[in-house]
Nucleic acid binder design. Structure first.
Lengths: 121, 121
DNA sequence: CCGTATCCACCATGATACTG
DNA sequence: CAGTATCATGGTGGATACGG
């Protein structure tokens, strides 16, 4: 949970589910760009934490509907508040990055292996 | 930024800085468990996003003080609300995990390499 | 349709040593 | 004290194939 807390897929998933219960593939389409595997992992994680309820409708094509539990709904509020802040301030942040000439990704912090290591003593 | 948004170190760092401007090593002690490298990266990232201000006091032992910018302070509110939610509900989540017998980590989802892959075709 | 199993590439993080 | 440089490693997420 804590690991996935700030994960964008988790935020997106909860943002979708807070609107209404949704089926797997619809969720996948709505979120967009998430792999099936990742959506499954995210949902299983949320389910394991008791934030999401998984309901299987016994129909000929399998239908599985996901919804937020009360606990999940209580999380949605602060989580989406954070998401809203990010959306609102993303422009300001990017403007700042451009001013200081820093790329929006942490490439400058990436490791650069340039020569052989020396022996550690 | 978005990458570090939900990062626990980022949350911890902002939680410390929202109280008062703090120096590097004091920050490191207060947060606890963070490596020097990671704290530096977190602060640089926040600084690059315009959320944290870095101020060098020209003194004999180098003194660098970090503080939140107004933008950073505006982030602190929703971010700490989220942190508070986690603290408040961590118990409920762990209880749920124990009930369903799932370990708190995603070990069950970890990759298991058991045999050679077959040729991809 | 709704998943699980498997493999892999990448990068985030920790540890350590070094600098000023 | 505050930070940078360097390397090893483990976890995260993608892709794909398969199963019910």
């Amino acid at each position: 949970m804590l690991g996935r807390m700030g994960d964008k897929w988790t935020i997106m998933t909860i943002a979708m589910l807070v609107q209404r219960p949704t089926r797997f593939n619809e969720l996948k389409r709505m979120i967009g760009g998430i792999s099936q595997q990742m959506l499954t992992r995210t949902l299983r994680s949320l389910e394991g934490d008791g934030l999401v309820l998984r309901k299987v409708h016994p129909s000929v094509p399998p239908q599985v509907e996901y919804s937020l539990t009360p606990l999940g709904q209580s999380l949605a509020q602060p989580l989406l508040a954070l998401g809203t802040w990010v959306m609102d301030n993303m422009g300001a942040i990017q403007s700042h990055r451009e001013q200081i000439g820093t790329p929006p990704v942490d490439e400058n912090l990436a490791q650069g292996v340039r020569h052989r290591p020396r022996q550690r003593g």
